[in-house]
Nucleic acid binder design. Structure first.
Lengths: 147, 147
DNA sequence: TATTGTTATACTCTATAACTATA
DNA sequence: TATAGTTATAGAGTATAACAATA
């Protein structure tokens, strides 16, 4: 019924929603599979958070919506690989502050570069008009994603 | 260097690649997290394959790029939940043919409907010009995703 | 006493190696 | 002998419950 009333108001909005959703999900999936990431998705997500700023274990667990023990495990794995470092909180002795190492920072940068490259190669075959459509669409999609 | 030569040929193509990639990945991530899927991602992926046609365990394992024992496990879980059924291959007694049950088929349909609904709600706030841009962009993105 | 993080334990999904049944 | 699938076992990821250290 939601579908029916929408279709009545805006012809073919349902089709657009389906096609756009599928295109976004397929592109996202292929980037994940084909850009040769060297860390697992859940690890990369933590590295990106730490690229913004250093965070405690609890902060990371809440941000990533996993339990504290899971985050302890993930952080330990990243420490073993030399991608992040642990430090005592200056005032609160209970907290552990996790931050990126230089290796961690360059891993984030390299992964982003490879992903952007994947997309850039595919945009490279498009003509000027198509690129202009995508430029306008990207601004709209960014708002949709941020909402 | 690839980046530099691209930028020389097509101003700001690198920025478009980055922004478009991020928008697609964020939308895809939010759909996955927020549309209330009732099966896990690897399970849903198998259901979608079986929605195309019935397949053997080996076929599914190759298509999903997991090992045969992993696919045996995944299929067993789906059988327990009543979403797929196993059957003997008519000629080759070694093979097991897996197909969707009615419940499995409606699960695929419902999951897709909820995902489309997520996107449709967000498209609902856009104006006619913005929707027209997204319509044109979707056709281009579908080609990019299929390439 | 409340909060932060770790340890203990268990469940799921992944894999490889070894095995069974069939071609 | 080769192929399809299962069972055995192990390695990560997830979780909750119980615990230690600190506020």
């Amino acid at each position: 019924m939601g579908q029916a009333s929408m279709t009545r108001r805006r012809p073919a909005l349902g089709t657009l929603a389906t096609d756009l959703r599928l295109a976004c999900m397929r592109i996202s999936r292929r980037i994940r599979l084909e850009s040769g990431d060297d860390v697992a998705p859940h690890q990369f997500s933590v590295l990106v958070r730490l690229d913004e700023r250093a965070r405690s274990i609890g902060d990371l667990a809440a941000t990533e919506r996993v339990s504290a023990p899971s985050m302890t495990r993930t952080v330990n794995g990243l420490v073993e690989r030399g991608l992040v470092a642990r430090a005592d909180h200056p005032e609160d002795g209970r907290q552990v502050i996790v931050s990126l190492t230089d290796l961690g920072r360059s891993t984030v940068k390299d992964t982003r570069r490879r992903r952007d490259q994947w997309m850039a190669v595919r945009l490279g075959v498009l003509d000027a008009d198509e690129l202009e459509v995508l430029r306008r669409a990207t601004a709209i999609l960014a708002r949709v994603a941020a909402e």
